[in-house]
């Protein structure tokens, strides 16, 4: 198969890879870079488990060709933890018992992060809207919605403190 060069920023690090042309970003993240936290639930854009953030937008990595990522900034859940400190969303998911099997969790958190990055005071409906492309089969969604709202509150409080 033809190989193509791709170059993107992944969690603040420059990546240069030769990948099979036509391979998805999901396949590159899991298969080549060994970042297994990006989950593969359906490979067809209907579960949201493979959600990553590309240039600030939540994107389904199973439907994104790796080739199209050249020059882009990509965030996976590995990129959320800074110096061992959890992101407020990760902390809120943990404290709010918002994960059971955890399969949907990375995608949920990244979908929520891109919401909170552009809207610091989301309503419950905003949160529902932001995670409506992500399927969870364990939690009944309620703890996830509550955790995202709790993280938003926490982030607002932190901003006030540092302001």
């Amino acid at each position: 198969m033809t190989k193509v060069a791709v170059q993107f920023t992944l969690n603040d690090e420059e990546q240069n890879e030769f990948v099979d042309s036509g391979s998805t970003l999901l396949a590159v993240l899991r298969g080549k870079l060994g970042l297994y936290s990006t989950k593969a639930g359906c490979h067809q854009g209907s579960c949201g488990a493979c959600t990553v953030i590309i240039d600030g937008e939540p994107r389904l990595s199973c439907l994104t060709l790796a080739q199209r990522c050249t020059g882009r900034m990509i965030t996976t859940i590995e990129g959320l933890t800074r110096d061992g400190a959890l992101h407020p969303l990760q902390q809120a998911f943990m404290e709010g018992f918002a994960a059971q099997c955890g399969f949907c969790t990375p995608g949920m958190i990244l979908a929520a992060k891109s919401l909170l990055d552009r809207n610091q005071s989301p309503s419950r409906d905003d949160v529902i809207d932001a995670i409506s492309g992500n399927i969870c089969r364990c939690t009944g969604y309620e703890p996830i919605i509550a955790a995202v709202l709790a993280a938003a509150e926490q982030m607002r409080a932190e901003m006030k403190k540092s302001a």
């Binding site: 639930g41 209907s46 809207d129 409506s132 399927i135």
Partner: peptide, 16 residues
């Protein structure tokens, strides 16, 4: 698949 096998989403929740 997930698109056709329907289950309630986060917008269909009752009060628990």
């Amino acid at each position: 698949d997930f698109n056709q096998y329907l289950m309630p989403g986060p917008g269909d929740l009752p009060e628990f």
